[in-house]
Protein backbone atom coordinates (compact mmCIF):
# COMPACT_ATOMS: atom_id res chain seq x y z
CA UNK A 1 0.00 0.00 0.00
CA UNK A 2 2.83 2.40 0.79
CA UNK A 3 4.26 1.61 -2.59
CA UNK A 4 1.05 2.48 -4.35
CA UNK A 5 0.61 5.84 -2.69
CA UNK A 6 4.25 6.72 -3.21
CA UNK A 7 3.87 5.97 -6.89
CA UNK A 8 0.75 8.08 -7.10
CA UNK A 9 2.42 10.98 -5.37
CA UNK A 10 5.48 10.76 -7.56
CA UNK A 11 3.31 10.64 -10.64
CA UNK A 12 1.58 13.84 -9.66
CA UNK A 13 4.83 15.52 -8.91
CA UNK A 14 6.26 14.31 -12.19
CA UNK A 15 5.80 17.45 -14.25
CA UNK A 16 6.40 19.98 -11.44
CA UNK A 17 9.62 20.95 -9.80
CA UNK A 18 10.40 18.54 -7.05
CA UNK A 19 11.07 20.50 -3.89
CA UNK A 20 14.04 19.56 -1.69
CA UNK A 21 11.57 18.58 0.99
CA UNK A 22 9.94 15.91 -1.05
CA UNK A 23 6.23 16.46 -1.53
CA UNK A 24 6.35 19.22 1.07
CA UNK A 25 6.77 16.76 3.91
CA UNK A 26 8.48 17.88 7.07
CA UNK A 27 11.79 16.36 7.93
CA UNK A 28 10.43 14.62 11.02
CA UNK A 29 7.72 12.97 8.92
CA UNK A 30 10.32 11.77 6.43
CA UNK A 31 12.39 10.26 9.23
CA UNK A 32 9.39 8.42 10.62
CA UNK A 33 8.40 7.15 7.18
CA UNK A 34 11.95 5.98 6.54
CA UNK A 35 12.04 4.19 9.88
CA UNK A 36 8.82 2.39 9.02
CA UNK A 37 10.28 1.43 5.64
CA UNK A 38 13.43 0.12 7.31
CA UNK A 39 11.27 -1.86 9.71
CA UNK A 40 9.41 -3.46 6.83
CA UNK A 41 12.66 -4.19 5.04
CA UNK A 42 14.03 -5.93 8.12
CA UNK A 43 10.81 -7.89 8.45
CA UNK A 44 11.04 -9.09 4.86
CA UNK A 45 14.80 -9.63 4.69
CA UNK A 46 15.22 -11.16 8.15
CA UNK A 47 14.12 -14.68 7.18
CA UNK A 48 16.34 -14.59 4.09
CA UNK A 49 19.36 -13.59 6.12
CA UNK A 50 18.56 -16.36 8.62
CA UNK A 51 18.27 -18.80 5.73
CA UNK A 52 21.70 -17.83 4.48
CA UNK A 53 23.45 -18.15 7.84
CA UNK A 54 21.68 -21.39 8.67
CA UNK A 55 22.71 -22.89 5.34
CA UNK A 56 26.30 -22.67 6.52
CA UNK A 57 25.73 -24.75 9.67
CA UNK A 58 25.30 -28.31 10.84
CA UNK A 59 21.96 -29.49 12.24
CA UNK A 60 22.93 -29.15 15.90
CA UNK A 61 24.37 -25.66 15.28
CA UNK A 62 21.15 -24.58 13.56
CA UNK A 63 19.18 -25.38 16.70
CA UNK A 64 21.80 -24.23 19.14
CA UNK A 65 23.41 -21.04 17.85
CA UNK A 66 22.36 -17.46 17.16
CA UNK A 67 20.47 -17.47 13.86
CA UNK A 68 21.92 -14.30 12.38
CA UNK A 69 25.59 -15.09 12.49
CA UNK A 70 27.98 -17.92 11.59
CA UNK A 71 28.61 -20.74 14.04
CA UNK A 72 30.77 -23.80 13.89
CA UNK A 73 32.66 -24.79 10.76
CA UNK A 74 31.51 -23.16 7.52
CA UNK A 75 29.50 -25.90 5.83
CA UNK A 76 27.73 -24.11 2.98
CA UNK A 77 29.60 -26.02 0.25
CA UNK A 78 29.09 -29.27 2.12
CA UNK A 79 25.37 -28.58 2.44
CA UNK A 80 25.12 -27.58 -1.20
CA UNK A 81 26.76 -30.77 -2.32
CA UNK A 82 24.41 -32.72 -0.04
CA UNK A 83 21.58 -31.45 -2.22
CA UNK A 84 23.03 -33.45 -5.06
CA UNK A 85 23.73 -36.57 -3.03
CA UNK A 86 21.38 -39.45 -2.92
CA UNK A 87 20.44 -39.90 0.73
CA UNK A 88 17.77 -42.29 -0.37
CA UNK A 89 15.99 -39.68 -2.43
CA UNK A 90 17.21 -36.23 -1.48
CA UNK A 91 19.55 -36.18 -4.48
CA UNK A 92 16.45 -35.68 -6.54
CA UNK A 93 16.59 -31.99 -5.53
CA UNK A 94 18.40 -31.02 -8.72
CA UNK A 95 15.66 -32.73 -10.66
CA UNK A 96 13.02 -30.73 -8.76
CA UNK A 97 14.84 -27.51 -9.61
CA UNK A 98 14.72 -28.46 -13.28
CA UNK A 99 11.00 -29.23 -13.01
CA UNK A 100 10.27 -25.88 -11.39
CA UNK A 101 12.20 -24.08 -14.12
CA UNK A 102 10.28 -25.95 -16.79
CA UNK A 103 6.87 -25.27 -15.22
CA UNK A 104 7.65 -21.64 -14.40
CA UNK A 105 9.06 -20.70 -17.79
CA UNK A 106 6.57 -22.72 -19.83
CA UNK A 107 3.60 -21.57 -17.81
CA UNK A 108 4.66 -17.94 -17.51
CA UNK A 109 5.44 -17.47 -21.20
CA UNK A 110 2.08 -19.00 -22.01
CA UNK A 111 0.34 -16.89 -19.41
CA UNK A 112 1.93 -13.73 -20.76
CA UNK A 113 0.92 -14.46 -24.36
CA UNK A 114 -2.63 -15.42 -23.42
CA UNK A 115 -2.99 -12.44 -21.07
CA UNK A 116 -1.75 -10.07 -23.75
CA UNK A 117 -4.21 -11.48 -26.28
CA UNK A 118 -7.13 -11.45 -23.88
CA UNK A 119 -6.22 -8.12 -22.35
CA UNK A 120 -5.90 -6.53 -25.79
CA UNK A 121 -9.25 -7.99 -26.81
CA UNK A 122 -11.01 -6.71 -23.74
CA UNK A 123 -9.33 -3.35 -23.97
CA UNK A 124 -9.52 -2.47 -27.62
CA UNK A 125 -12.52 -4.30 -29.06
CA UNK A 126 -16.09 -3.74 -28.08
CA UNK A 127 -18.19 -6.85 -28.50
CA UNK A 128 -21.38 -8.19 -27.06
CA UNK A 129 -20.92 -9.58 -23.56
CA UNK A 130 -17.44 -8.12 -23.16
CA UNK A 131 -18.12 -6.77 -19.70
CA UNK A 132 -19.86 -9.92 -18.54
CA UNK A 133 -16.99 -12.03 -19.76
CA UNK A 134 -14.47 -9.78 -18.09
CA UNK A 135 -16.38 -9.94 -14.82
CA UNK A 136 -16.48 -13.71 -15.17
CA UNK A 137 -12.70 -13.79 -15.54
CA UNK A 138 -12.36 -11.61 -12.46
CA UNK A 139 -14.83 -13.76 -10.55
CA UNK A 140 -12.56 -16.79 -10.92
CA UNK A 141 -10.12 -14.94 -8.67
CA UNK A 142 -12.60 -15.33 -5.86
CA UNK A 143 -12.78 -19.14 -5.97
CA UNK A 144 -10.18 -20.65 -3.66
CA UNK A 145 -8.36 -23.58 -5.21
CA UNK A 146 -8.87 -25.63 -2.06
CA UNK A 147 -12.62 -25.52 -2.62
CA UNK A 148 -12.37 -27.11 -6.05
CA UNK A 149 -9.51 -29.51 -5.29
CA UNK A 150 -11.51 -32.72 -5.52
CA UNK A 151 -13.60 -31.83 -8.62
CA UNK A 152 -10.41 -30.57 -10.25
CA UNK A 153 -8.66 -33.83 -9.51
CA UNK A 154 -11.56 -35.94 -10.80
CA UNK A 155 -11.66 -33.85 -13.98
CA UNK A 156 -7.89 -34.09 -14.45
CA UNK A 157 -8.10 -37.81 -13.93
CA UNK A 158 -10.73 -38.11 -16.71
CA UNK A 159 -8.69 -36.17 -19.24
CA UNK A 160 -5.40 -37.80 -18.33
CA UNK A 161 -3.64 -34.78 -16.87
CA UNK A 162 -2.80 -36.42 -13.54
CA UNK A 163 0.94 -37.07 -13.32
CA UNK A 164 1.48 -35.15 -16.53
CA UNK A 165 3.70 -32.12 -17.09
CA UNK A 166 0.84 -30.50 -19.01
CA UNK A 167 -1.40 -30.80 -15.99
CA UNK A 168 0.90 -28.28 -14.34
CA UNK A 169 1.66 -26.03 -17.31
CA UNK A 170 -1.77 -25.66 -18.93
CA UNK A 171 -3.64 -24.26 -15.90
CA UNK A 172 -0.66 -22.04 -15.09
CA UNK A 173 -1.12 -20.40 -18.48
CA UNK A 174 -4.49 -19.04 -17.44
CA UNK A 175 -3.94 -15.95 -15.34
CA UNK A 176 -6.95 -13.76 -14.49
CA UNK A 177 -4.64 -11.28 -12.80
CA UNK A 178 -2.51 -11.17 -15.94
CA UNK A 179 -5.56 -10.50 -18.11
CA UNK A 180 -6.67 -7.74 -15.78
CA UNK A 181 -3.22 -6.17 -15.74
CA UNK A 182 -2.81 -6.35 -19.51
CA UNK A 183 -6.23 -4.84 -20.07
CA UNK A 184 -5.52 -1.96 -17.73
CA UNK A 185 -2.09 -1.50 -19.18
CA UNK A 186 -3.21 -1.50 -22.78
CA UNK A 187 -6.05 0.87 -21.87
CA UNK A 188 -3.42 3.30 -20.70
CA UNK A 189 -0.50 2.80 -23.05
CA UNK A 190 -1.92 1.84 -26.45
CA UNK A 191 -3.94 4.81 -27.74
CA UNK A 192 -7.10 4.01 -29.68
CA UNK A 193 -6.14 6.73 -32.17
CA UNK A 194 -2.95 4.89 -32.98
CA UNK A 195 -4.83 1.74 -33.78
CA UNK A 196 -7.34 3.59 -35.90
CA UNK A 197 -4.55 5.29 -37.80
CA UNK A 198 -2.94 1.93 -38.43
CA UNK A 199 -6.25 0.50 -39.64
CA UNK A 200 -6.69 3.43 -42.01
CA UNK A 201 -3.24 2.66 -43.37
CA UNK A 202 -4.45 -0.86 -44.10
CA UNK A 203 -2.64 -2.80 -41.38
CA UNK A 204 -4.16 -6.14 -40.42
CA UNK A 205 -5.49 -6.63 -36.91
CA UNK A 206 -2.82 -9.18 -36.09
CA UNK A 207 -0.11 -6.86 -37.41
CA UNK A 208 -1.44 -4.03 -35.24
CA UNK A 209 -1.39 -6.26 -32.21
CA UNK A 210 2.05 -7.60 -32.93
CA UNK A 211 3.82 -4.46 -34.11
CA UNK A 212 2.03 -1.67 -32.27
CA UNK A 213 0.24 -2.91 -29.18
CA UNK A 214 2.86 -5.37 -27.94
CA UNK A 215 5.90 -3.05 -28.18
CA UNK A 216 3.96 -0.27 -26.43
CA UNK A 217 2.84 -2.68 -23.76
CA UNK A 218 6.28 -4.25 -23.33
CA UNK A 219 6.78 -3.15 -19.71
CA UNK A 220 3.32 -4.55 -18.97
CA UNK A 221 4.29 -7.85 -20.58
CA UNK A 222 7.37 -8.05 -18.40
CA UNK A 223 5.28 -7.31 -15.33
CA UNK A 224 2.86 -10.12 -16.16
CA UNK A 225 5.76 -12.47 -16.95
CA UNK A 226 7.41 -11.72 -13.64
CA UNK A 227 4.22 -12.09 -11.63
CA UNK A 228 3.41 -15.35 -13.40
CA UNK A 229 6.87 -16.80 -12.85
CA UNK A 230 6.68 -15.95 -9.16
CA UNK A 231 3.17 -17.40 -8.86
CA UNK A 232 4.10 -20.67 -10.57
CA UNK A 233 7.44 -20.91 -8.80
CA UNK A 234 5.63 -20.68 -5.47
CA UNK A 235 2.62 -22.78 -6.43
CA UNK A 236 2.27 -25.60 -3.95
CA UNK A 237 -1.31 -26.73 -4.03
CA UNK A 238 -1.77 -27.62 -7.71
CA UNK A 239 1.34 -29.83 -8.02
CA UNK A 240 0.51 -31.35 -4.66
CA UNK A 241 -2.85 -32.50 -5.97
CA UNK A 242 -1.89 -33.69 -9.42
CA UNK A 243 1.52 -35.27 -8.94
CA UNK A 244 2.09 -38.56 -7.17
CA UNK A 245 5.55 -39.18 -8.60
CA UNK A 246 8.50 -37.55 -6.88
CA UNK A 247 10.22 -37.22 -10.27
CA UNK A 248 7.54 -34.71 -11.34
CA UNK A 249 7.56 -32.58 -8.18
CA UNK A 250 8.54 -28.94 -8.34
CA UNK A 251 10.67 -27.47 -5.57
CA UNK A 252 7.73 -26.45 -3.38
CA UNK A 253 6.27 -29.93 -3.02
CA UNK A 254 9.72 -31.49 -2.91
CA UNK A 255 10.85 -29.18 -0.11
CA UNK A 256 7.69 -29.93 1.81
CA UNK A 257 8.40 -33.65 1.54
CA UNK A 258 11.97 -33.00 2.63
CA UNK A 259 10.74 -30.89 5.53
CA UNK A 260 8.46 -33.63 6.78
CA UNK A 261 11.41 -35.99 6.66
CA UNK A 262 13.79 -33.56 8.32
CA UNK A 263 11.55 -32.54 11.21
CA UNK A 264 10.82 -35.99 12.53
CA UNK A 265 14.43 -36.98 12.21
CA UNK A 266 15.72 -39.99 10.40
CA UNK A 267 19.28 -41.14 10.42
CA UNK A 268 20.20 -38.66 7.74
CA UNK A 269 21.00 -35.10 8.76
CA UNK A 270 18.29 -33.49 6.65
CA UNK A 271 17.62 -30.13 8.31
CA UNK A 272 20.68 -28.37 6.81
CA UNK A 273 19.86 -29.96 3.45
CA UNK A 274 16.32 -28.61 3.72
CA UNK A 275 17.46 -25.11 4.64
CA UNK A 276 20.09 -25.01 1.92
CA UNK A 277 17.40 -26.23 -0.46
CA UNK A 278 15.19 -23.35 0.62
CA UNK A 279 18.01 -20.91 -0.07
CA UNK A 280 18.64 -22.38 -3.51
CA UNK A 281 14.90 -22.11 -4.18
CA UNK A 282 14.64 -18.38 -3.50
CA UNK A 283 17.91 -17.23 -5.08
CA UNK A 284 16.73 -17.57 -8.70
CA UNK A 285 13.65 -15.45 -7.93
CA UNK A 286 15.82 -12.74 -6.40
CA UNK A 287 18.11 -12.78 -9.43
CA UNK A 288 15.09 -12.62 -11.72
CA UNK A 289 13.81 -9.54 -9.93
CA UNK A 290 17.18 -7.87 -10.21
CA UNK A 291 17.32 -8.56 -13.95
CA UNK A 292 13.72 -7.63 -14.76
CA UNK A 293 13.37 -4.88 -12.21
CA UNK A 294 13.94 -2.00 -14.65
CA UNK A 295 11.15 -3.28 -16.90
CA UNK A 296 8.98 -3.83 -13.90
CA UNK A 297 9.56 -0.35 -12.56
CA UNK A 298 9.42 1.09 -16.04
CA UNK A 299 6.03 -0.48 -16.47
CA UNK A 300 4.79 0.97 -13.27
CA UNK A 301 6.12 4.45 -13.86
CA UNK A 302 5.73 4.86 -17.58
CA UNK A 303 2.62 6.99 -17.27
CA UNK A 304 4.28 9.40 -14.95
CA UNK A 305 7.29 9.98 -17.17
CA UNK A 306 5.45 10.61 -20.40
CA UNK A 307 2.31 12.08 -18.92
Amino acid sequence: MTRTSARGAKAKAGSDQVSPHLYGLRRSTTVVLNLIAVGFAAFVLGPLVWLFFSATKSQAEIYDSFGFWFAGPFRLWHNLSALGQNVSGTGIFVHWLGNTLLYAIGGAVGATILSALAGYGFSRYSFRGANTMFLLVMATLLVPLTAIALPLFLFYSKVGLVNSVWGMILPSMVSPIGIYLMRTFIDASVPKELIEAARLDGASELWIFWRIALPLAFPGLMTVLLISIVAIWNNYFLPLIIFSKASLYPLTVGLSALSQAAETGTKAELVPVLITGGLVTVVPLILLFLVLERYFRGGMLQGSVTG
Partner: peptide, 17 residues
Amino acid sequence: VGARRTSALAAIAAASV
Protein backbone atom coordinates in the same frame (compact mmCIF):
# COMPACT_ATOMS: atom_id res chain seq x y z
CA VAL B 1 -4.19 9.38 -22.01
CA GLY B 2 -1.68 10.58 -19.47
CA ALA B 3 -4.19 11.29 -16.76
CA ARG B 4 -5.82 7.91 -17.10
CA ARG B 5 -2.48 6.21 -17.01
CA THR B 6 -1.68 7.41 -13.57
CA SER B 7 -4.71 5.78 -12.05
CA ALA B 8 -4.32 2.65 -14.16
CA LEU B 9 -0.74 2.22 -13.08
CA ALA B 10 -1.64 2.74 -9.46
CA ALA B 11 -4.17 -0.04 -9.93
CA ILE B 12 -1.53 -2.28 -11.46
CA ALA B 13 0.82 -1.67 -8.60
CA ALA B 14 -1.89 -2.41 -6.07
CA ALA B 15 -3.04 -5.51 -7.88
CA SER B 16 0.43 -6.90 -8.30
CA VAL B 17 1.28 -6.37 -4.67
